[in-house]
Simulated assay, not measured.
Amino acid sequence: MTIDPVFGDGYAMQRIDLGADAEGPLVATLVHRLPERPDSVPILVGHGWSDYVLDRELLEHLAARGLDVWALDLRKHGRSLLPGQTPTEIDHLNRYDEEIDAALRIIGRDRPPIMLAHSTGGLTAALWAVRHPGTIRALALNSPWLEMHLGAAVRRLLSRPVSRLAGRLNPRPLLPQGVEHYARSVPRDYGGLYAYALALKPPGGHPFPADTFAAVIDGQSRLESAGPLAIPVLVMHSARSVFGMEFTEAMRRADSVLDVKVMAEAAAQLGPDVRIEAIEGARHDVFLSDADARHRAIEVLDDWLDVVLTGRHTMSGRGSKTERIPPVSSSSEGAG
């Protein structure tokens, strides 16, 4: 392992060799907060589409809770994007099994981690958990892209034509870069609160490869038909979505990327032990929100972690929220 060039001292980076595809060598990048804490519960943090793991303060907070903190940049994302590669390109979400499996092997097979993932990474993490029971302890999802805008009917309508286009275009873009509404609220370069590399997480995202879009639709279809997850699940999202071609101030305190109503409905079907929390004032990444919403998101995560780490679950019926258990203690003071 070497020092992580993004987070610097205190964080080690390890390349995971994934062979090659038509664009050349493939790697993923596993980041670990030092020192190693093999006696504590590990947590593995993942990113969304056109994204990378960038929130050092969140990782520091998790470490302060006593967790052994790891993070994974998937192939063709962030730290793992190599020259000449099409950013975010993948033809099937199951291909990410290689780097997830390698990361879990490095963390330790006898130490199933909690997994915390965002947006498209949340879909990938949920699919992994469904297909590999027993490999992770619990699943926390930050605005996961579990379903297409407007719901399953739209996804089914799009599935065949998108799949055909992906067969012709492959890694070439199906969708261009999006509007920069989300970026108007988040990065410091645009007057936001958070510093990160816009080359790795560009305003509007990278152009969306056709085969990646088809892979997401396929993953959502497979998740819909999958059996329930037997592990505790937390799903956090903004209290509302605001869309539009023109930027409005309301977008600063809403999800301007995904439909939170559809997201919550899909989340309720993940299993019998699902806690769904709408965070007032949150953006698409609830942890990259204004201070009050970020603080509330961390407070909710802490409360859920207290329950997961002590095993005090109150199970309700499939598709419903977990019965609420009063917080034991919060270690999120000042974390926002």
Rank of each mutant, 00 (worst) to 15 (best):
V286M: 01
V45S: 04
A129G: 03
D39P: 02
N170I: 07
G319Y: 01
L169V: 10
T2I: 11
P25T: 09
D189Y: 05
I43L: 04
H92S: 09
T310C: 06
M236D: 02
G10A: 01
D292Y: 12
L174D: 06
G84R: 10
R222N: 05
G319A: 13
I90G: 02
E277F: 01
G8Q: 01
D68S: 09
T88F: 07
E23R: 12
P5R: 13
G204V: 01
Q14F: 02
I217W: 11
E180C: 05
P83W: 07
M1N: 07
A117D: 07
D290E: 15
M245K: 09
H77S: 13
R33C: 13
L18Q: 00
V69K: 11
D292F: 11
M263A: 03
Q85E: 05
R109L: 12
I231C: 08
Q14L: 05
E98I: 06
L67T: 10
A183N: 08
R105S: 14
G48E: 11
H149D: 14
P87D: 04
P38Y: 03
I298F: 04
K321E: 09
R283P: 01
R160A: 15
P42F: 07
M315V: 14
E280M: 04
R75E: 11
S241D: 09
I16R: 00
S332H: 15
D9S: 02
L139M: 11
P112T: 03
D21L: 06
G219E: 04
A126M: 02
P272K: 02
R312V: 05
L26E: 06
P207R: 09
V69E: 10
D68G: 12
E99L: 00
G78N: 06
L301I: 13
G204R: 08
I217M: 15
T135N: 06
P161N: 14
M148Q: 15
L158D: 07
R252C: 09
P209N: 07
V242Y: 04
D73H: 09
S256R: 00
G191P: 04
P5Q: 03
A266E: 05
E180N: 14
S256A: 15
E23G: 03
I325V: 11
A183I: 02
V41R: 15
K201V: 03
A63R: 11
I16P: 08
N170C: 14
D189W: 01
P87L: 02
K321R: 13
A140W: 10
S238D: 08
T310K: 04
D303G: 13
W49E: 11
